[in-house]
Simulated assay, not measured.
Amino acid sequence: MKDLGKLKYFLGLEIARGPEGIYVSQRKYALDIIVEAGLLNAKPCSVPTELNHKLALASALPHTNPQQYRRLIGRHIYLTFTRLELSYNVHILSQFMQNPLEEHWLAGLRVVKYLKGCPGQGIMLRSDCDMKLTAL
């Protein structure tokens, strides 16, 4: 066994320590998703999904590359480790992995555009935490 020092990066998770606590993010992973999707120059979205989306009732053409959709949604699933606000959207999009339509692909790209606005967002594990769960 070898001591590699303080943990900074592991399996796509970036860990930063400070007097306030430990901050965990997937900034590099999110940026890799943005680059892979070809949306580096795209305008960011303020919300990850459209209001009153009807993805379950979509009747558009099938997506030309279902494997591409599955890879994108799989990357979104891994990103939910530190980006909990994406959980609902990724849950909805993952229901269409078998037969994705073009509308589902566009919804997946909208999540990527949302990531572009805040790629470094993550989880702060505070050192002065009283171990109580608080929802705001």
Rank of each mutant, 00 (worst) to 15 (best):
D3A: 12
D3K: 13
L7A: 04
K8Q: 11
Y9H: 13
L11R: 14
L11V: 04
I15Y: 05
R17H: 05
G18R: 03
G21W: 03
I22Q: 04
V24Y: 09
V24T: 01
V24Q: 02
L31A: 11
D32W: 00
I33L: 10
I34N: 08
I34H: 07
G38S: 15
G38H: 04
L40D: 14
P48C: 13
E50G: 02
L51A: 13
N52M: 12
H53C: 03
H53Y: 01
H53V: 06
K54F: 10
A56T: 10
L57N: 12
S59V: 09
A60W: 05
T64P: 12
N65H: 05
N65V: 14
P66W: 08
Y69D: 12
Y69A: 09
Y69L: 06
R70C: 01
R71Y: 04
R71F: 06
I73A: 04
G74K: 06
R75V: 05
H76V: 08
I77T: 07
T80K: 07
L86S: 11
S87F: 07
S87A: 09
I92V: 13
L93Y: 03
Q95W: 10
Q95A: 10
M97A: 15
M97V: 14
M97F: 13
Q98D: 14
N99F: 08
N99E: 12
L101M: 11
E102R: 07
E102Y: 02
E103H: 03
L106M: 11
A107L: 04
G108F: 11
R110Q: 15
K113H: 08
K113Y: 09
Y114F: 05
Y114P: 02
Y114Q: 00
G117L: 05
P119R: 02
G120Q: 06
L125Y: 14
R126E: 13
D130C: 10
D130P: 04
K132I: 15
K132A: 15
A135C: 15
